[in-house]
Nucleic acid binder design. Structure first.
Length: 217
DNA sequence: ATCCCGAGGG
DNA sequence: CCCTCTGGAT
């Protein structure tokens, strides 16, 4: 199957079966989403959702977080991965929000990426989820699933995957396709032993094609 | 032992 | 490009 067909089948399937896909991180405003996404690096959303309620109660906005100490923030997030780094990032991020962005979460990726703890992936999440822009955040799931499905080929870096997906996906589907790929990767196309037996989209999957149909090639 | 919605620094 | 950060689930 040609790559163009894979994209068409991909969009057709998920726009039909999961037209309302969204993040599983709990949040109620852009500030909370930014904090949650920073925390989510190398950690499950489920665990992030366990620590954010108390964190948001103590630090409900950028001003309160900016005036907090790294040590106190740490006590709220000690059960997530890299709590020392993330506590430092969160306080630094909040301070920069206050100093350069009037305490508001900026809209542009080039501004978001200046914030401590915010890399390209997090910036793209905020850009697409909060501001509904056609940005593709490539995390471990998007990277793996795109390559397996055959939406990307010979993509060895997240940036390469991002560029190919943005180029080939219909513009209005880029933001939601991010969630389609993540949810599929989280529950079906898992890293270690992909559950091809219960996967509904093997009919256009390159990985299934090469690993299950003609194992010779 | 490997993976989870990575980022920063060398 | 590499390495480090480094908790919890499987």
């Amino acid at each position: 199957m040609l790559k163009k067909q894979r994209y068409e089948e991909f969009v057709k399937y998920f726009s039909t079966h999961n037209p309302d896909a969204q993040t599983e991180l709990n949040y109620s405003n852009p500030y909370e989403l930014l904090v949650a996404v920073i925390l989510s690096a190398q950690c499950t959303d489920k665990r992030i959702n366990q620590v954010t309620p108390r964190l948001f109660e103590r630090f409900p906005d950028a001003p309160s977080l900016a005036s907090g100490t790294v040590d106190e923030v740490f006590t709220y997030i000690r059960s997530v991965s890299y709590p020392n780094n993330k506590a430092k990032h969160l306080v630094g991020m909040a301070n920069k929000l206050m100093e350069e962005f009037q305490g508001k979460v900026p809209e542009k990726v080039e501004d978001l990426i200046k914030l401590p703890g915010v890399g390209r992936k997090t910036a793209n999440v905020i850009s697409s989820v909060v501001y509904n822009k056609p940005a593709m955040a490539v995390d471990t799931h998007v990277f793996r699933v795109s390559n397996r499905l055959g939406l990307t080929s010979r993509a060895t870096t997240p940036l390469a995957v991002e560029k190919q997906l943005v180029k080939h996906l219909p513009k209005e589907t880029i933001a939601i396709a991010h969630h389609w790929l993540i949810l599929h990767g989280r529950y079906i196309c898992v890293a270690r032993r992909p559950k091809c037996e219960e996967c509904p989209i093997t009919y256009f999957c390159k990985y299934f094609e090469t690993h299950y149909l003609n194992k010779k090639s």
